[in-house]
């Protein structure tokens, strides 16, 4: 029973990690990453580490999420095609030469 719950949580962890990595919408990625932290906090609790669970929930799901959202607010929300994430720098010359 408890193993089943752990397995579900671990599966969720992998799914949220992959979703956050592959999402082109950075805002969505940040929110999913916040979910990742929440699942991680539950897992810490299941590993009998309540101190770590508290830290993960407050810092991972709370503080860093807001900081990331603020950073996105000041840059741009969508990741561009071709993996170039810089708005102001424009296309990276080195990369465009290689293509």
């Amino acid at each position: 029973m408890s193993d089943a719950l752990s397995l579900v949580l671990l599966a969720l962890l992998v799914v949220t990690a992959l979703a956050a990595t592959f999402s082109r919408d950075l805002l969505a990625a940040v929110i999913v990453f916040s979910g990742y932290s929440l699942v991680m906090a539950l897992l810490w609790q299941r590993l009998q580490a309540p101190d770590l669970a508290l830290t993960e929930a407050a810092v991972g799901a709370g503080v860093t999420t807001v900081l990331f959202v603020t950073a996105i607010f000041k840059t741009q929300r969508m990741e561009e095609e071709g993996g170039d994430r810089h708005r102001r720098g424009g296309a990276n010359e080195k990369e465009s030469v290689e293509k």
Partner: peptide, 21 residues
């Protein structure tokens, strides 16, 4: 009980972030 300075501080910061939002 579980917790301590850093955790409490982070919870307070998260609360202030909610206020700001």
């Amino acid at each position: 009980s579980p917790g301590g300075g850093f955790q409490g501080g982070a919870v307070m910061a998260a609360g202030m972030f909610l206020f700001a939002a």
